[in-house]
Design a protein around this nucleic acid. Structure first.
Lengths: 185, 185
DNA sequence: TTATACCCGTGACAATTGTCACTATTTTAA
DNA sequence: TTAAAATAGTGACAATTGTCACGGGTATAA
């Protein structure tokens, strides 16, 4: 199980086996069943999560009880309500399992300790954060510049496997259109 | 002029005067007139930019020649086409001055050199990146969950000064609605 | 097994937003 | 100063998308 995370980290940096073992002491493995929430809105966000296996949605529920999916997190992705995580505030979003899921959890204290102890890990996390920012900005751009049909077509082009794993209702909540509209594309 | 950047950096970290002077050697000051482009789509992106004074828009122009503003950058903000900057690819967006603007430019080589030379600066940039990611994700959320009127009202609530500085046309391109629709709110 | 919840498509209609056209005002640059 | 360009509001209409309602299918759990 740890090998998955090790492989992921070593895509970007190189760590000795001893360093990697010391590093792993900061992560905590957790498993959840389909339908369970790792955290929910209004509650504190203890950790950032690395997905070993399974599938998560980061979802915001508005006043009208409509769900909006900010992002999906699949194998090899990091996810959290990062605003709440870094600012130590209550979550505004919930992190919900769409499949049985195994994650490595990393607390905020451990996040900064890892940075202090392993400069290479700080570099790794800087890379991660930069890529996350770029991804979010491209999502902004797609919401600004394309209609529902185009967004849908690009999603299935980029993540064809996703369609087999989540319902159209979830896809619609991610694309920002109603279930019915998506159904008519 | 350098004092502005120094003050900005020292919000997050502490640097000795000597270190700060060494650091400044990596930045290059540039000035642009209103209407000029710092870089444009299809061209390489040499730098990331810290805005000392003035106002920028990061704008994407689609096949129909419609402009979509991914973000504004005002005093004390960092901006670039970060995908093109980090990946050393051609820009997909343009960075255009909405006012006469002064920036500090930082090349990618200097970005990583600064990280290597000053661990505190790497921490600073990690903070920056995390906050940028959070901001972009919240923009995704507002595009997903609110209509044009609500987005407009929240924008003027959060940045009331922006209305005095940019045209309604720009605001519309940022909110993702037509100029006419915005005019009718 | 059976009941319950979810999933997904579709018709009918309403609401929102976009597009085009025109006008008037302000800003910009020659 | 003056001409050109940008800005902003609005009417009329089209296109897109949302909402509500229904029904049949499929998964899930008691």
């Amino acid at each position: 199980m740890e090998q998955v995370l090790k492989k992921h980290i070593q895509k970007s940096i190189t760590l000795s086996d001893e360093d990697f073992d010391r590093l792993m002491g900061h992560f905590h493995i957790q498993t959840f069943n389909k339908g369970e929430s790792i955290f929910i809105a209004t509650q504190p966000v203890e950790n950032a999560y690395y997905v070993v296996s399974g599938l998560l949605k980061l979802v915001y529920t508005d006043q009208d009880a409509a769900a909006h999916i900010v992002s999906f997190a699949m194998e090899d992705w990091w996810e959290s309500d990062f605003h709440a995580f870094f600012m130590k505030t209550k979550a505004t979003m919930s992190l919900v399992c769409l499949e049985n899921t195994t994650v490595f959890a990393l607390s905020l204290d451990d996040y900064w300790q890892i940075c202090d102890m392993f400069p290479q890990m700080e570099r790794f996390l800087l890379h991660k954060s930069n890529m996350g920012f770029i991804g979010a900005q491209q999502r902004v751009l797609s919401l600004l510049s394309t209609n529902a049909k185009e967004r849908y077509e690009r999603l299935i082009a980029q993540y064809p496997a996703l369609l087999q794993r989540v319902s159209k209702t979830q896809i619609a909540a991610y694309l920002g259109v109603s279930r019915e509209t998506l159904s008519r594309l």
